[in-house]
Design a protein around this nucleic acid. Structure first.
Lengths: 188, 188
DNA sequence: CACGCCATGTAACATGTTACATGATTGC
DNA sequence: GCAATCATGTAACATGTTACATGGCGTG
């Protein structure tokens, strides 16, 4: 039972639909959680049945109707309970890192290509996070916003997301360079 | 089918038992994958049936017998196929980040405490990774090892693991400071 | 004498992923 | 005209987690 809390936390940002949530969770909600649309629709249905979120139908003319969800009082209580419970350790799960681990034995060329590609993905994400951060803090500079702004939670997680991508990017560049040098030197 | 590749990649480091593997995957195999012992025993059994790893029994006197596994030729081929296939995007899954995201609404005090705690965990991990790196490169300095050493894969992933922990540590410190300042100022 | 480490597994349950199902609108 | 976006769901399948089961040895 962990996705439920990620959903509740994401919904604190403001009323949104399953579809919009799915977008956020696809990017990774500032890179700290990931889920597919199907899972979210299911989880929202459960949360609604338990009274932790409330949905209201919005009829649209040019697009399909949608349902917007808000966290209820009971939902906030549940989040508070969760916040006070012991946290599970974080973990990364990264195909590309598995490939680097195996690169010596499993062929470096393809891995190098994928590392190069990953750098571009990281660049794109870093820009997205940068924009999100600017939008959240509005007119204020970062220090002021963190002192006085409303809801710093999403800002802090987004900061971490950006730093994670920057770190990952730097590592990809380095790993690719190392592997390339070894291929060139014929190290085996 | 992704754990299988993580297991194969980990086994390249040298023959080891399910129990030893479990230790590695508990720390996180240099923080890029995580799995419980039960899953590993199951996966090893499957891999053996498919001929991707070979196990040999080692009878011990003072301890329970164990089975040591090695990657077979077919296993290396499978890794090569995997390395050439498109990689899934990496993702973090972190309870603590969910809590920070919700901290504004769900009570900051407990979250601050857990951030402080997490800093200590990070310190411990950073030290472990540092020791692993030193052991892997032996006498050589890092540059030389990365140019000429055998098997740089594990070294590179371990580097990333250490940097990840360092980044996470820094973020925890910052997030805790921000939340503390707001609690002190009574921002709500 | 109790606790933790070594060592391996099975079974039941909870989660997460893939495939299927539908259908209008907007932009290229 | 074709693809992408908006929008929601169900069903089947694959993975991951928790609980159970066993048992000797070493250390405080």
């Amino acid at each position: 039972m962990a996705l439920r809390h990620a959903v509740l936390a994401a919904l604190l940002d403001g009323e949104c639909s399953g579809y919009q949530l799915a977008k956020a969770f696809d990017v990774g909600v500032a890179n700290f959680w990931h889920a597919l649309p199907q899972q979210l629709y299911l989880e929202l249905a459960k949360l609604e049945k338990e009274g932790l979120v409330a949905g209201r139908q919005v009829i649209q003319e040019t697009r399909p109707n949608k349902r917007l969800f808000t966290v209820t009082g009971a939902g906030v209580d549940e989040l508070a309970r969760f916040a006070a419970s012991p946290a599970k350790p974080s973990f990364i799960r990264d195909d590309l890192m598995v490939k680097v681990q195996a690169a010596d034995a499993a062929g470096a060329d393809e891995v190098i290509r994928q590392l190069d590609e990953r750098v571009l993905v990281a660049d794109a994400k870093i820009e997205v996070f940068g924009k999100l951060l600017r939008r959240m803090r509005g007119e204020l500079d970062e220090e002021t916003f963190l002192r006085e702004g409303a809801r710093v939670g999403p800002y802090l997680t987004c900061l971490r997301g950006r730093e994670f991508e920057a770190g990952h990017r730097a590592w990809c560049v380095r790993a690719a360079a190392v592997l390339r040098a070894r291929v060139a030197a014929g190290v085996r």
